[in-house]
């Protein structure tokens, strides 16, 4: 059998983004395990297609695999947005396990991928969605009146908590912070903020308890996937299943490496709301946001409540025994004396 190239499209160019490290690892492993039958060609900076069009580019055969965020295709993904609910879990590992459970067992969830002719290989997730800000945020009141870049459901959540949500185009994120158009960014993982140097201008990170609520994924073109021999398909799936484990240790190592520099150079702080504060946040935010989504799904003819419950069950199932340590936990361990 001849050598096969796999075309990978990337939205970003930033090498610091851990997701890219993972995807490169995935392909290195694939090359090794297939004895060099598969090699990947990477195309950065949306060279082959824009983020929102990646699914259709894969279906059409322009690209073989890609990394994307669910939010780019709200029309194609309705029920899958259940995985983007705030306040359900704080561990991307648990979220990822639950996603794969439902992807494999719930036909309605699966159908949204099949219809687009793409195959979910692995959730390549973001860690806890922090708020990065110019001034420390220590209590709910601190959020009031704060100008934050936000979007989608988490934006709605923060505006319920009194923040003013502004939409800033992604390329203007750094500028908007540098020039003080916003006081901070919501929904951003610590490593992503580090990669974009956002912590240089907004060094304070806080996790207010909205948890992980971003669903970013690594997917393959279904025509490409189906054209592969059975044993290769199995090999790819197996590798996909290893991604979450690999990320779990990888992220902890990454945070151990980058946090000291952020603290030393830019006086970064990492603060988690207490249990009571989290409960308070969720009391204000969650019932309404979940209900809105369920109502929206019902209107579209989908059993929103059932899917939400299924996801909650799956999260509950995978939570015990989870050994992931958040960036905040890593910080606490490294700086036990920090207030």
């Amino acid at each position: 059998q001849g050598k096969k190239h796999v075309f990978v499209n990337h939205t970003y160019s930033n090498d610091v983004l851990y997701d890219l490290v993972i995807i490169r690892w995935f392909y290195e492993e694939l090359e090794k395990r297939s004895n060099g039958r598969y090699t990947a060609k990477f195309y950065y900076n949306e060279a082959l297609t824009k983020a929102a069009d990646q699914g259709s580019a894969a279906a059409s055969g322009t690209i073989d695999s890609f990394f994307n965020s669910l939010g780019y295709n709200p029309t194609e993904f309705k029920l899958n947005r259940v995985f983007e609910h705030v306040g359900l879990t704080n561990s991307f590992y648990v979220q990822g396990k639950a996603i794969m459970d439902l992807y494999n067992s719930e036909p309605l969830i699966r159908q949204e991928w099949d219809k687009q002719d793409i195959v979910l290989i692995a959730p390549v997730l973001q860690t806890e969605m922090a708020i990065t800000s110019k001034k420390p945020i220590r209590k709910i009141e601190d959020l009031r009146g704060l100008k934050l870049r936000g979007y989608a459901q988490s934006g709605q959540a923060l505006s319920m908590l009194g923040s003013e949500i502004l939409t800033i185009a992604a390329p203007e994120r750094y500028d908007a912070l540098a020039k003080g158009v916003v006081d901070g960014m919501s929904g951003i993982a610590v490593d992503v903020a580090y990669g974009e140097r956002l912590h240089e201008m907004s060094p304070h990170f806080v996790d207010i308890g909205l948890g992980v609520y971003s669903f970013t994924y690594f997917a393959m073109s279904k025509p490409t996937f189906d054209s592969l021999p059975q044993e290769d398909q199995a090999m790819i799936k197996e590798l996909g299943a290893e991604v979450l484990e690999k990320m779990k240790t990888g992220f902890i190592d990454l945070y151990k490496t980058i946090i000291p520099g952020m603290v030393d150079k830019h006086k970064s702080t990492f603060y988690e709301f207490s249990e009571e504060q989290r409960a308070e946040v969720l009391k204000i935010v969650t019932p309404k946001i979940w209900e809105n989504w369920v109502a929206e799904m019902n209107k579209a003819g989908f059993p929103g409540e059932r899917i939400l419950n299924q996801y909650m069950e799956a999260v509950k199932k995978h939570a015990p025994g989870d050994t992931y340590k958040s960036a905040f936990a890593v910080y606490r361990e490294m700086y036990p004396d920090a207030a």
């Binding site: 297609t49 824009k50 929102a52 069009d53 259709s56 580019a57 279906a59 059409s60 055969g61 322009t62």
Partner: peptide, 17 residues
């Protein structure tokens, strides 16, 4: 290089994006 499907995809989505 990648077939007519790729071209169709580029023509359908490229101008908008």
């Amino acid at each position: 290089i990648r077939g007519w499907g790729s071209t169709v995809n580029a023509l359908s989505n490229g101008p908008w994006s």
